[in-house]
């Protein structure tokens, strides 16, 4: 085979990428306390311990609140920016858009550090609110990228037609624009949510005493005893991610089918 070298490479690459993730559930159900082969026996204890752990529950609740808020806020902000950049020509558009997209390339440690300094100087108390603020900042550029594509592929005369048929600017948005960009809005919320869920540095800097999932996991890795519980948690997260992604793709495809648009790539 001409491509056998390449094929081997691809297989090894995928193995390297996903094998550790496959090991997560394997050890999460292993009754041994040490993460090593041979496997000891089957148990669901780690999951029970995980569910009983109040700090972990608190970290999870915090992360869900932060992720949900960051997803909604950054998507709403990105909708304004994306629509403006798709529809209007205005003075200073390029620099303004560049500025909004900047967190995409800025090291998070710089963002986290400088936000911390500014917030402390302003006397703001660190809490999950400050983490939400930081996460909105870094998730918005991703949301804009997704939404810009949707808004700029929308025929401008659709909105004009609705307005011409007697709708107001707002009801035009509700009856025409929103249904047509809804799949992109859902994608954007999911991506923002995911970014926030596993963000560590900003959460570490800005959360004060509140744990989030990543900071909690990091703090537990020091205790070998806690590791199987973390693996159980990891297993749950992987399952949740796959479920979310599948849902997102399903919604996206349904949206495409309904409007007869061409499929131009998605998650799956």
């Amino acid at each position: 085979m001409k491509f056998s070298g390449l094929r081997t490479y691809a297989v090894l690459y995928l193995l390297f990428l996903y094998a550790p993730i496959v090991l997560l559930p394997v050890f999460a159900f292993n009754s041994g306390t040490v993460v090593s082969f041979p496997l000891q026996g089957f148990t669901t204890d780690w999951f029970a311990q995980m569910a009983a752990n109040t700090t972990l529950r608190r970290a999870l609740t915090n992360s869900l609140i932060i992720g949900g808020s960051a997803a909604v806020l950054s998507t709403v902000l990105a909708m304004f920016a994306a629509r403006a950049s798709a529809r209007y020509r205005f003075r200073g558009k390029a620099p303004v858009m560049g500025f909004i997209m900047l967190p995409l390339v800025l090291p998070e440690i710089m963002i986290g550090g400088s936000l911390l300094i500014v917030l402390l100087a302003m006397g703001v108390k660190l809490s999950i609110l400050t983490v939400i603020l930081g996460h909105v900042l870094i998730a918005t550029p991703y949301a804009i990228t997704i939404l810009s594509t949707a808004f700029s592929s929308l025929d401008p005369s659709l909105e004009e037609a609705a307005y011409d048929l007697g709708e107001t600017k707002w009801s035009t948005f509700r009856r025409v624009t929103l249904p047509l960009v809804l799949p992109a809005i859902i994608s954007s919320m999911l991506i923002s949510f995911t970014i926030s869920m596993d963000e560590f540095i900003i959460a570490f800097f800005l959360a004060g005493n509140e744990p989030t999932l990543p900071t909690y996991i990091y703090s537990q890795l020091r205790f070998p005893k806690a590791i199987p519980v973390i693996l159980a948690l990891g297993t749950c997260l992987v399952v949740a991610s796959i479920a979310l992604l599948t849902l997102a793709e399903y919604i996206r495809r349904r949206g495409l089918a309904k409007t007869g648009a061409k499929d131009s790539g998605g998650f799956l």
């Binding site: 025929d155 005369s157 659709l158 004009e160 037609a161 609705a162 307005y163 011409d164 048929l165 007697g166 709708e167 107001t168 009856r175 025409v176 249904p179 047509l180 309904k258 409007t259 007869g260 648009a261």
Partner: peptide, 29 residues
Amino acid sequence: PANKRPTNMVFQSYAIFPHLTVAENVAFG
């Protein structure tokens, strides 16, 4: 404003609302 004028327009791209049926499009206004 355009939504209060006694005029209606047929656009070059037709601007048919792709998420609605034919009847829903016609009844839009």
